[in-house]
């Protein structure tokens, strides 16, 4: 239906002109592939649970889970490649399409408030009760301070890179991105090291009491977000190396930056209430 639109409707844009399958304006396999992969991740988790109960084999769950992740990533790759990357310089990049992507990111960050909100609500709920609920590990060590500093600095380097591309300074742009990525990787490494210290040396793991649930729930969720942010910045970095982006075309730089800064702010809040907040008055 609406077949005539491309012909008589001036300025009508078909959404998927350069996509797979080729030759159509409103067809793409990628969303379907992505959705099958995404749903497969859930099915894998379900099979894992069934495997624990001995209903299916133990390996079925992890196998489906991992396979689906690859399918999901393939779908994402195809989608993003055809929608944003392949015709970067020739595709339409009006003010309107830039602002819709920014609004999409703003709305997504709004939904993140809900995602984090449930876990913070849980933490505040237990924090308001008898405190400490159990023996707490030593939380505010030099590691967490260093990690916090690293993440804050990474926000500044990213902003510096963003300013650079708006001034057509490609060298500083790539440099800023690289430094940010490096700092992000160091942060993730620091978090892994902290987990290692807690689990192996302090005997404090996710199953150790209600604070264990809250601590690993919140830091784990945040860690996943930093990792996703690093992936997003990694994509931007690769595209920058390939010579994409200019002072006029840098929407994905700004949306990835919004995400990174958001995750940074969440971390500062998290350090204040979870690390410091747990020790104050304990």
């Amino acid at each position: 239906m609406s077949t005539e639109e491309a012909h008589d409707d001036h300025g009508h844009h078909l959404p998927a002109v350069q996509d797979w399958p080729r030759g159509f304006g409103e067809a793409s396999w990628w969303p379907f592939v992505t959705a099958v992969g995404g749903a497969g991740i859930y099915a894998g988790a379900g099979l894992y649970v069934m495997g624990q109960d001995g209903i299916v084999g133990q390996t079925a769950g992890p196998a489906v889970f991992i396979g689906s992740i690859f399918l999901f990533l393939a779908g994402l790759y195809g989608w993003l490649y055809h929608a944003f990357v392949s015709h970067f310089w020739s595709r339409d990049a009006s003010q309107k399409s830039a602002s819709k992507l920014r609004w999409g990111m703003i709305a997504f960050l709004g939904s993140e408030l809900g995602t984090f909100g449930a876990l913070f609500a849980y933490y505040f709920f237990i924090r308001a009760g008898t405190w400490p609920p159990q023996e707490l590990p030593h939380l505010t060590g030099s590691l967490v301070l260093a990690n916090t500093a690293i993440l804050i600095v990474s926000s500044f380097t990213l902003h510096w890179a963003h300013v650079a591309i708006r001034e057509e300074n490609h060298r500083n742009f790539i440099l800023g991105l690289a430094v940010t990525l490096l700092l992000g990787a160091v942060f993730i490494g620091g978090q892994v090291y902290e987990y290692y210290e807690f689990i192996v040396h302090s005997n404090f793991s996710i199953t150790d009491g209600i604070f264990g649930s809250a601590f690993y729930g919140l830091t784990g969720l945040h860690g996943l977000h930093v990792s996703l942010g690093a992936v997003l910045l990694g994509i931007v970095f690769v595209r920058a190396l390939r010579g994409q982006y200019s002072a006029e075309r840098h929407v994905s730089v700004s949306t990835a930056s919004m995400y990174w800064h958001f995750v940074d702010v969440v971390w500062i809040f998290l350090v204040v209430v979870l690390y410091v907040g747990a020790e104050v008055g304990a």
Binding site: L113, G114, A118, Y122, Y216
Partner: peptide, 23 residues
């Protein structure tokens, strides 16, 4: 704001059911 919050609560419940957390 509502659905992601339920999503996190469901994940917490799933962790309680399968991974020994105490949410």
């Amino acid at each position: 704001f509502a659905f992601p919050l339920l999503g996190s609560a469901i994940v917490m419940l799933l962790l309680d059911r399968n991974f020994g957390t105490m949410f």
